[in-house]
Amino acid sequence: MMEKVSYNKEAIIELINLKKSFGNNRVLNDLNLTVKQGENVVVIGKSGSGKSVLIKCIIGLIKPDSGIVSVFGNDVSKLSHDDLDQMRAKVGFLFQSNALYDSMTIRENLEFPLRRHWLKDTKDTINDLVLDALTNVGLADTIDMKPSELSGGMKKRVALARTLILKPEIILYDEPTSGLDPVTGKEISNLIVEIQKKYNTSSIIISHDLSCAKITSNKIVILIDGTCYATGTFEELNNMSDKKVKQFFD
């Protein structure tokens, strides 16, 4: 039985006093963050400031030292293995490195999460879902290729298609535009907004890319010293006089 721990009824993700250290290095320090239904939150911070650790705590890949990670009102650290799997089926994760399985074709890559979560589906249904997901990102013709045959931008799109295939309610993006040229980066950013509008998903987007933040965000959080230093819209933060905030926008 999953215990509901949410304190904010509107929140779909809620982080309360989250702490995480690696050895003597405290990465997250009493971090608090709330994401509402249909909201895109962009998290900005310096390299090594714990942005990726933050979203890995949300999906249960890293256990926080203390604090509460509430997703759909459930404390992630207290979920059983099966409940965690059920929760993960509703949360998509786009990895920074795309994490496409090299030994599989694009079709097999997309089928992989489907076969795990929706075992009862027929071969035809799975095939339709795969084609639909690839069509959404404009890459239906790559279905029988291997990831090594695709460009960086195409890999990112396929990874996004794989993330979307289970129709998640929450999507966690780990630097979705890193390593891409500005044009492809902008295309991916627009795709993120499109997905949010189409499926009404909530997202946390980790990014260094200000243009991505500008296009995709409803709210931006600046992570400094393991805490949320400032929160606001792109314009609000851009107009702030605080030096620590200003350095991200200069």
Binding site: K56, A89, F112
Partner: peptide, 17 residues
């Protein structure tokens, strides 16, 4: 090793495997 460093193992875990 390469699956580990390219986060493919994490990705499997996230996929419920």
């Amino acid at each position: 090793g390469s699956m580990k460093v390219t986060e493919q193992i994490d990705s499997m875990e996230v996929s419920g495997t």
